[in-house]
Every structure is written in structure tokens, then in C-alpha cells.
Design a protein around this nucleic acid. Structure first.
Length: 1076
RNA sequence: GGGCAGUUAGCUCAGUUGGAAGAGCAUUCGGUUUACACCCGAAAGGUCACAAGUUCGAGCCUUGUACUGCCCACCA
């Protein structure tokens, strides 16, 4: 029985030729049909063994066949052999990509597609001279076929048979179709415009890049399930540990987190590959006030307040939110590929961590370092809680400076003027202060002032803190509402009268003004003063006002009883830890910031009037007033045995638990093997904005409770800013959702971009063009690998060092091996110093420019021979890049010959001196320089790309001449040179372009092309450049001081350079003369 | 008020023992080159903020000035 070949092409010439091709063959029968629906109907009818059809362009038959077959799986095994157009293989390949790239031509898996496309290109035949529409046109007869094996019932064709058919068709068409068919397809359209038209039409459908989304979702699960990220506390391998700065469970991650996590992941992945017992401990922070604010905001949208729910219900609600937010965060982290040990995930509110908190609180209390007392604290009237100094953000605000008359009795005048920015606080004034040396007020020692509107008698106090220059030199003193006044009051025994309550309203002590909001009261008081003629003036005044860092409400200094930590004794040890190098800041200048703060540290207010947080473990006895602070919940008062104990309602500042993170997460206060193995941690990676909040306090707590600083190094990175240099923040709405960014650019590209942004410590600006650039890089890697792997047999073994050494290596091979190991050395050195940007740059430079642009092109001369080195370098590069781009590298590594089960646990490359080959580098670079120079000439002289030019090289010594002879092919191919002639001296012919490459002179005879003026201009420019260098070097070398005092090598080097330039000048000038 | 950064190409930034000013993006020109048009080849673009000093030699070290940014701080 004959096998059916279905030809779907309405070009009658092609129909005839294909039919003729098989007419004598007893095995095959060709059925020709037109394009379109007929073809599809025939497939169904005839069940052909093979289908020949034209282009895969949308709307064309091949495309539609693909679609049809996709929708009718029963037909899928039918080999689809696509005979694509005879005019432009390039476009056809693009078209095939559309068809097979997953959009329509489903029979082709993406991986297969690449093989197909490559196969297609292999079958391209050049058009015979004189036949082509343009001389350099190529007749593209490309054959694509489904790699799927046909089923047995349908006269199956083997791959070999399919190829044989393809070959026969192509051979026949090549021989005969040219005249009649080839160029009629696109008769008069300029090739370029065809291409433009094609790309326009396809721009939406061509996959813009390799399909990172499918790759990136696939690998993480594998890695995690295989336990690659798990640390082993029992292991004797050298440990490397990091605890993650736990993100707040306030929502989801933003780009800043991604930066932080990327840095850590790069470090951790490399350490893991280097064989360390690596622990990266993940987790989240309950973030007391921040989270509470978020949930309260949600409640408000439902028209509720937390008080409507009550404490228990509210906390339940927060837990629900925590679950949602925490889940979303860990999902995001996984998507970002970060390699932490999820089996050790912690939350600052976990039982274990809460126990640590309690232990720390109680022991500090017992030591007297935690105390309860009435102090002036920062109060947020909206959150209705105390805040620590760090949680108050001071911002400049345009306000007023009010001058108010205070009537005086018994003084040198009837009144004094007082300047204030906060007139409403006058209700709580209990004194007036002046500088003791201020002569203007010397006569007021025994005077008494009357507080306007209130009538209270105020005495004058004399205090050096008063600035005589400011305002009138008289300060109203409100000890209950101003930190400064509080101190003055303390020193002079003034009464404290609180007039503002916890909601920011005037309290009962405020008389007529009671119940008013503090800002309404201000207006009313100013108005009333004005009515009474006591308001002297109001000036614009810019001053700093504290705002709640969470809700931006103006903070009110209030007198309040709170819990405090006396920090100074803890700070001393923490300062010493950094001073003595137990912990090192990277970059070091952040240590200064740390010291600055530590040295001026003040007591830390740790109690918060919130519901979400660790409850303070203190109980008050109603019977005897005893305060019980205890590790265990007490049943009764230890003093009076009363059962009437009430636990303190307040919770702890969230940082109180965060400061314990490095050891509380490892089981402290128990003595665990985790602590033994992984504590102190190796490294902390964090942004500089939480040095005070977190880093400093961790060092204090670590020293205090474990005797050790909690990390050996602190890598401080900058904040991510947007193009307008603004800090990314949710309220500004400029935080990109990392997942969306990753969806657009690919996680690997985003990570690489973040790593490459800038030197440690400085702020980083993320701009789109950089993301674009690194997405291109990812694509580049993908394509290079695809190219290299397309020729590799799946059973190939990864080339070993020894195997490579035994090969007869070409110059290009030796060169790239040398460059490769140097890149490895450089990347390792950079990473050792945490210079990720430097490492990223080296990687990009090496892989893209050395490996792809030069080496890959050079190997196209001898693809077979170069294969082992290509594989070797590619494999090494993938391992080198893996910490930066985990997904892409794993995917490619798995597709190529490799040893081991995953690149995640493959060894990180190390420098190998033996691959360094100075002479190969020098020679290859000389070859490259020649190529570049020839290309320059071609470009300047507008030599068409298709034209090959002759090249003459002079001044080569024996060694170089031999090297050139051995490697002439590289120059011929890469510079499009037809023949290289090594000569004694240049011909001197006028129509030859000249150039200098290293020690060599070269000329490119371009009779009929060379434009004398352009050539002159070009040479003149070069001569000028060279002369400039010469002048500079001569000046330098004529300087006796330089020659005498500079190191000998430097002088020698300069002399050499001068000589080189002089020689060049001579040669270039000769070239110029010739043109005269 | 104190402290810390920064100022290098149009933009974003590198530039570590002081010894030949760099990258990416953007721009211009050329290009179907059996991986990649997210590509290839080439070009143009700089008074390294300013001034003085140290040095044979300064983007780099010292001092000062200007501007920008950040942090801390109780000027009402």
C-alpha cells in the first residue's frame, strides 16, 4: 500500500514538482490540494502519512493545519511536514515560531520547537547567482515536521523517512523551482519591507522571550520537596546561617523586600553550593501597631471600631488577617525563589518566641532594668497608645508663632510677652521661664504672672536652657505637655497639669475649653486672646512636629505611666561588640551611625496600649497594690495571697520581641542544638532604616542574654527608590507588586537587576530600562544555551576537566577557558566582599560578550570540534550564575549533560590557575583587534555585508605570522575577509584602507570603493588621537621627577606605550601620505 | 544644631593599595551573519561640582566652598 503525501499548496509549479519527485516511487502517492479548508478536509479524509504545506503564518495553511490537528488529537500523530515558502527562510522560521510557540500549533512543544527551527535553518540553500531577486538572497526551503511518532495503524513514517522525503523535495525544488517559482512569491516587494510587514503582523504573537513563567513555577516545588534548603543542626559541615528580617504581616511584600531577599538568597545559594551547612531561617513579624492599624482600617470600612468588637474578638480578627497575610507573604517568597528552610519558619507571636519574650521581660525586671513609671511619653491620639521615640517621625510643618501677653504683678513691667507655637497648651502652664543672665527679666525674680483665660498664678523660674535670642526670651512652661518643659518643671518644682487627654481633646482641667479637640481649642484660644487684646502677633513659623510613624497623626507629649527599659547598661556591651569586631558592619561607615545612636541612647518605652501583641507579664493586686512580674501566670498575690489579681492590659512594643529573633527562633531559652550549631549567625542583611529599631537592639539583647553578638557581619543595603527618587511606600502608591514585576520581566531578570543596581549601602533606583536590559540577558542565556544544546546528543556526558585537557584545543578554546576561569575568580572575589553589583557585571560581560559575541561566533567554524568546550564553559557558567538566576540556570542545566541531581546542590565554580593562558589571551585579542579594525573600515567605507574584502597584514614577526596563519579562518569569517596575505610591508597602493592592530599594520584594498576623503578623515582622526597620547607621554617622560621617583615598572610601562604610539603614528602617517 | 552620604556621559550608576576615565540604557550609522531583532557590527558623547593643597602623578588623599539627599536632636 502506498503511503500518502498530502501537498497543500496552491502553487501549481510546486504541485507539479513535488508530484514528479515521487512519481516513480512505488511507496508514495502525492495528493495535491489547494490551501485552506480543502487541505484540512483532506487530512481528515485521507489520513496522510505526511502533509506538505506552506507557511505557518497566521491565515496560511500550515498554521491552520496546526490548529486543526491540535483540536483533533486523534490526528495528532500524523506527521506534519511543512514546506515553507521559497523566499525568506528567516521569516518562515519566525512564522513557524508563531505557529509552534504554543499559541496555535500545539503539536510542537516549546522544546521541540527549537529543534525544529534549527532543523529548518539547516535546510536552507543559497540561491544560485543570477536567479535571486537580489544577489544575496537565499532560497529558503525549510522543512518542519512533527517529532511525534505516528501511530501504527496509519502507515507510519520514521524520522529518517520523513527526513528523506524532505531531502528529496528540497533537492528537486532546489534544482528546478528557482526559475519558475522562487521569486514569484514575492515578486517586486523589497525584501526589507516584507520583513517589516511580517514583524509588524507578528509582533503581538511572537513570544517576546523564552517562556520564563512556566520554568519559574516548576522548579521551586521540586527544590523544596527534595529538602535542598533544609539545614542540619547535627551536621559537622561548616555552618552558614542567616535569619531573615521577618516581614510584617501587614499585607504582602514589596520591591524592597525583594531586594533584601535577593541579596540574602544570592549569598545563601552560593554558600550552599560551596558545601556549607546552610541555614536560612524564614518567618514573619506580628508587627503590633502596624498590623493593628491595618485591621482597624478594614473594620472602619465596615463601620466598626475595635471597641465595637471587644478585645478578644478583635484579636481573633487580627489572627485571621495574619493567616491571610502570612500565607500570601510566604507564597510570594517561594515564587521569588528564595531558598530558606521552611521547616523552621517562625512567627514572633509563636509560643516558643513568646516564651523567650517573657523570659527576657522578667529577667530584666528582676535586674531592675525594666521599670514602670510616670514620664512624659509620645502619645498617638488616634492609635491611643504610647510610642517610643523611634516611632515618632519629625517633619517640618508650616505653623504659627503666637505672641501672647501674660499680665504680671510685682515685676519690672505690667506684662511679659511669651512666644509659643502651641497656644492651646497654655491651659496647662504652671510657670514662666527666662534665662538667668537675661537682664531684661532680672526684675522679675519675685514677680507673679497671671495665666490669661485661666487666671492661675505663675511664678518665674530661671533656667539656662532658655534661648535669649528666640522670641521674647520668655518661655511658658507646660510640664505636662512638652518634654523640654517637663525638664524645666522637674528642676524647679513646677506643678504638672495635664490638659489634653488620650484622645487629643482638652480634658477637665481645661475649664471652658474641656471637650474641644486640641486643634479646635487652639483656634478658640487664639480667638479669645485676641478678643481680650492679649494676642500680640501671629507669625508664620516652620517647625518640626512629631507624627505617628504608622498613622501620621500629630503625636501628643503626654504624662503617662508606662513600662520602660533602661538601655544604657545594655548599650555598653553592644558598643563594645562592634568596636572589638565581634560584629562587623558592611559597609563600615554604618558603624558610625550605630555608635552615634548607641552613645546617646535613652530609655525605651516598651508598653503599648494596643491589643495585638505580647501582653505584659505584670499583675496588679487589687488588695494590697503589689505588682507581680512573673514567668508563670500567678494565682494569687505573693504578698497578701489575694486572688484579686489583674493582668496589665498593655502589650509590648513589637521590637521587644523582634530584638530576640536571632536566638528566640532557634529555641532560646532552651539550650538547643540549633543554637549550638547556628548561633551566632553568620550574616544579617537589612536596610539601613532599621539599624536603630532592630539591629542595635538585637546586638544588645544578644549580648545580654546569650553573651554573644547575634551575627558576625551586618550587610546594610540601601532603600529602593522610584525614578523620582522617592522612597517606595504604600501611601505613595509607588510600590510595584513584585509578583507583577516578575510576571512581566521574569523573576530571574528581576533578581539579577536588583543585584546589579549599585554598591552596598547606597540607595538604589529601579528603572525600567535596567529591567529590560537584564530580561534581554536572560533571553540571551537561554538562546545561547539553546544553540549549544541543539547539537548535543542527550546521552552525552558532561565534559570533565581531564577530557578537555586531552583535546587538541584551538586558540579560541584556550582563550575562552582562560577568560572563563578568570571570570570565576573575579565573581568569587566580588561575592566574598558582598559586591554583588560587581559580580553581576562580570557575569554579564563574560557571558554575553566574551562567550556569546566572540567565542560562540568563533566556534561556528568548527561546531563539532568545539562542542566539549562549549558545554564545559556553559555548564560552569550556569553554576556561576545560579545564585543570581536560579530558575533559568536550573532549567538549562537539567537539559544539558550534567552530574548530580540539581544545580542547587552542585558545586560553585572555583578559579583554576591551570586554565589561565596568557599567550592564548594575547593572541586571541590580537585576532579580535584585527577583526574590529577591518570591521571599522568596512563600516566607514560602507562595504556591503555580503562583500568579502582582501586583507594584507604586515610587520608580523615569525611567531605572530605563524599564529595568524593558523587562525586566519577566524578573521576571514568574522570580518568577512576573502583572503589574508601576510606581507613584508604594505603595498602602498592608494586605494587601500589602513589601520593599526597592536604591533601590526593592516590594509584593506578597496579599489573602487575607498572614498579618499573619508579615509583621510578617518586616518587623521586616528593620528590625532595617537599624537595626543604621544604628547602626554612625552611630557611625562621628560619630567625628571617622574622618571626618578615613580616606580620603575610604571616608567617602563609608559616608555613602552610611548614607543608603541610612535610606531603607530609613523605607520598611520605613511598611510596618509599615500593618499596625497 | 549635630552627624552621615552624594555630586563622574543625555539618564541610572560603577570606578580599593593614587599610575591609560567605564558599563547599561538612550542617541547616530550599518546589518537577514545556519542561537538570539530582547540580536549583530560600528560611532558619537566627560573641565570626574568648584577651589586650594599634598604628590613625579589626583575621579581617588587633605582642607575649604557650593549644591542635593538622608538620619539624629527638647529652640518654645
Amino acid at each position: 500500500m502506498k503511503k500518502t503525501i498530502l501537498l497543500a499548496d496552491d502553487n501549481t509549479t510546486i504541485q507539479r514538482l513535488v508530484t514528479e519527485t515521487f512519481s516513480d516511487d512505488g511507496d508514495f502517492e502525492v495528493v495535491s490540494v489547494g490551501n485552506g479548508d480543502t487541505a484540512i478536509r483532506k487530512i481528515n479524509e485521507l489520513r496522510p502519512s505526511i502533509v506538505l504545506a506552506d507557511a505557518l503564518l497566521p491565515g496560511k495553511t500550515g498554521y491552520e493545519i496546526c490548529e486543526f490537528v491540535k483540536e483533533h488529537p486523534v490526528l495528532e500523530p500524523t506527521p506534519v511536514f511543512l514546506l515553507v515558502g521559497a523566499f525568506d527562510p528567516y521569516d518562515e522560521v519566525e512564522a513557524a515560531r508563531v505557529g509552534a510557540g504554543g499559541q496555535v500549533g500545539k503539536p510542537f512543544e516549546p522544546r521541540e520547537l527549537f529543534e525544529l527551527v534549527t532543523g529548518a535553518i539547516d535546510r536552507t540553500v543559497p540561491a544560485p547567482a543570477g536567479q535571486a531577486a537580489a544577489e544575496d538572497d537565499i532560497l529558503g526551503l525549510t522543512a518542519l515536521f512533527s517529532p511525534k511518532q505516528p501511530d501504527s495503524e496509519r502507515a507510519p513514517l520514521s524520522t529518517d523517512e520523513i527526513e528523506a522525503i524532505a531531502d528529496r523535495v528540497i533537492a528537486r525544488l532546489s534544482a528546478e523551482v528557482i526559475e519558475s517559482v522562487a521569486w514569484e512569491v514575492v515578486p517586486d516587494i523589497a525584501r526589507k519591507s516584507v520583513r517589516e510587514e511580517m514583524s509588524k503582523r507578528m509582533s503581538i504573537e511572537i513570544p517576546k522571550t523564552y517562556d520564563f513563567s512556566s520554568i519559574e513555577t516548576r522548579w521551586y516545588e521540586t527544590w523544596e520537596s527534595r529538602g535542598y534548603f533544609k539545614a542540619d543542626a547535627e551536621s559537622s559541615r561548616p555552618p552558614f546561617s542567616i535569619v531573615i528580617p521577618p516581614p510584617n504581616v501587614t499585607g504582602s511584600l514589596h520591591m524592597g523586600h525583594l531586594l533584601n531577599h535577593t541579596i540574602q538568597d544570592i549569598v545563601v545559594r552560593r554558600k550552599r553550593m560551596q558545601g556549607f551547612n546552610t541555614l536560612w531561617l524564614p518567618g514573619t513579624d506580628h508587627a503590633g501597631i502596624a498590623t493593628q492599624v491595618v485591621v482597624e482600617r478594614q473594620l472602619r470600612e465596615e463601620g466598626l471600631s475595635r471597641h465595637d468588637l471587644g478585645r478578644e474578638e478583635f484579636v481573633k480578627r487580627v489572627w485571621a488577617w495574619k493567616k491571610e497575610s502570612g500565607d500570601s507573604i510566604t507564597r510570594q517568597m517561594r515564587r521569588l525563589g528564595i531558598s530558606c528552610d521552611w521547616s523552621r519558619e517562625r512567627f514572633t507571636f509563636d509560643a516558643g518566641l513568646s516564651r523567650a519574650v517573657r523570659e527576657v521581660f522578667v529577667s530584666l525586671y528582676e535586674e531592675g532594668l525594666i521599670y514602670r513609671g510616670e514620664r512624659l511619653i509620645n502619645w498617638c491620639p488616634r492609635c491611643r497608645t504610647a510610642l517610643s521615640d523611634l516611632e515618632v517621625e519629625h517633619t517640618s510643618v508650616q505653623g504659627g508663632l503666637y505672641r501672647i501677653k501674660y499680665p504680671v504683678r510685682g515685676g519690672a513691667a505690667d506684662y511679659v510677652e511669651v512666644a509659643t507655637t502651641r497656644p492651646e497648651t497654655m491651659l496647662g502652664d504652671t510657670g514662666l521661664a527666662v534665662h538667668p543672665d537675661d537682664e531684661r527679666y532680672a526684675g522679675f525674680v519675685d514677680a507673679r504672672a497671671e495665666l490669661p483665660l485661666v487666671g492661675r498664678e505663675l511664678r518665674f523660674v530661671f533656667d539656662e536652657i532658655v534661648d535669649r535670642e528666640f522670641g521674647t526670651g520668655v518661655v511658658k512652661v507646660t510640664p505636662a505637655h512638652d518634654p523640654n518643659d517637663f525638664d524645666i518643671g522637674e528642676r524647679h518644682g513646677l506643678e504638672r497639669i495635664g490638659v489634653i487627654d488620650e484622645e487629643g481633646r482638652i480634658g477637665p482641667a481645661g475649664g471652658d475649653y474641656a471637650g474641644l479637640d486640641r486643634f479646635e481649642a487652639r483656634e478658640k484660644i487664639v480667638h479669645d486672646l485676641d478678643d481680650r487684646g492679649l494676642l500680640v502677633s501671629v507669625e508664620d513659623h516652620v517647625h518640626n512636629v512629631g507624627h505617628c510613624s504608622r498613622c501620621r497623626t500629630v503625636v501628643e507629649p503626654l504624662l503617662s505611666t508606662q513600662w520602660f527599659v533602661e538601655v544604657a547598661p545594655l548599650a555598653a556591651d553592644a558598643i563594645r561588640a562592634v568596636n572589638e569586631g565581634e560584629t562587623r558592619f558592611i559597609p563600615e561607615n554604618w558603624a558610625k551611625t550605630y555608635f552615634e545612636w548607641m552613645n546617646n541612647i535613652r530609655d525605651w518605652c516598651i508598653s503599648r496600649q494596643l491589643w495585638w501583641g505580647h501582653r505584659i507579664p505584670a499583675w496588679y493586686c487589687d488588695a494590697c497594690g503589689e505588682i507581680v512580674v512573673s514567668r508563670m501566670d500567678p494565682d494569687s498575690c505573693p504578698k497578701c495571697q489575694s486572688k484579686a489579681l489583674r493582668q496589665d492590659d498593655d502589650v509590648l512594643d513589637t521590637w521587644f520581641s523582634s530584638q530576640l529573633w536571632p536566638f528566640s527562633t532557634m529555641g532560646w531559652p532552651e539550650d538547643t542544638t540549633e543554637l549550638e550549631t547556628f548561633y551566632p549567625t553568620s550574616l544579617l542583611v537589612t536596610a539601613y532604616d532599621i539599624i536603630f529599631f532592630w539591629v542595635a537592639r538585637m546586638v544588645m539583647a544578644g549580648k545580654k542574654f546569650t553573651g554573644k553578638a547575634p551575627f558576625r557581619e551586618v550587610y546594610v543595603h540601601g532603600l529602593l527608590r522610584d525614578a523620582a527618587r522617592q522612597k517606595l511606600s504604600k501611601s505613595k502608591g509607588n510600590v510595584g507588586d513584585p509578583l507583577l514585576v516578575c510576571d512581566e520581566y521574569g523573576t530571574d531578570a528581576v533578581r539579577f537587576t536588583l543585584a546589579s543596581l549599585g554598591a552596598p549601602g547606597s540607595d538604589l533606583v529601579l528603572v525600567e530600562s535596567q529591567l529590560d536590559s537584564y530580561r534581554s540577558f536572560a533571553t540571551k542565556i537561554w538562546n545561547a544555551a539553546r544553540f549549544i544544546l541543539s547539537h548535543v546528543d542527550e546521552t552525552a556526558r558532561p565534559p570533565s576537566d581531564e577530557a578537555i585537557r586531552k583535546l587538541d584545543l584551538s586558540l579560541a578554546d584556550r582563550w575562552i577557558l582562560s577568560r572563563h576561569t578568570r571570570a570565576v575568580r573575579s565573581v568569587n572575589a566580588s561575592l566574598d566582599r558582598y559586591f554583588l553589583h560587581e559580580a553581576a557585571k562580570t557575569i554579564r560581560q563574560f557571558f554575553w560578550h566574551d562567550f556569546c559575541d566572540w567565542y560562540l561566533e568563533m566556534t561556528k567554524l568548527h561546531p563539532q570540534k568545539s562542542r566539549p568546550v562549549l558545554l564545559y564553559v556553559l555548564e560552569g557558567s550556569l553554576r556561576m550564575m545560579h545564585p543570581f538566576m536560579p530558575f533559568l540556570t536550573e532549567e538549562l542545566w537539567q537539559r544539558m549533560p550534567h552530574d548530580g541531581e540539581s544545580i542547587v546542590i552542585a558545586p560553585y565554580p572555583e578559579f583554576q590557575e591551570s586554565w589561565v593562558d596568557e599567550s592564548a589571551e594575547a593572541h586571541a585579542e590580537l585576532i579580535q583587534e584585527i577583526i574590529v579594525k577591518v570591521r571599522n573600515i568596512r563600516s566607514e567605507m560602507h562595504v556591503a555585508a555580503k562583500d568579502f574584502v582582501p586583507l594584507r597584514i604586515a610587520q608580523a614577526d615569525a611567531e605572530v605570522a605563524a599564529m595568524l596563519a593558523d587562525n586566519a579562518e577566524y578573521v576571514r569569517r568574522l570580518a568577512r575577509v576573502e583572503a589574508i596575505e601576510t606581507v613584508e610591508r604594505l603595498s602602498g597602493e592608494k586605494a587601500a584602507a589602513q589601520a593599526v592592530a597592536g604591533p601590526l599594520s593592516i590594509e584593506v584594498p578597496l579599489a573602487g570603493i575607498l572614498d579618499i576623503e573619508t579615509e583621510q578623515a578617518r586616518l587623521n582622526k586616528e593620528v590625532e588621537k595617537v599624537r595626543k597620547e604621544i604628547a602626554g607621554l612625552e611630557r611625562k617622560l621628560e619630567n625628571v621627577n617622574f622618571v626618578e621617583r615613580a616606580p620603575r615598572e610604571v616608567v617602563k610601562e609608559n616608555r613602552q606605550r610611548l614607543a608603541d604610539y610612535q610606531a603607530q603614528e609613523v605607520r598611520l602617517s605613511q598611510g596618509l601620505d599615500r593618499l596625497q
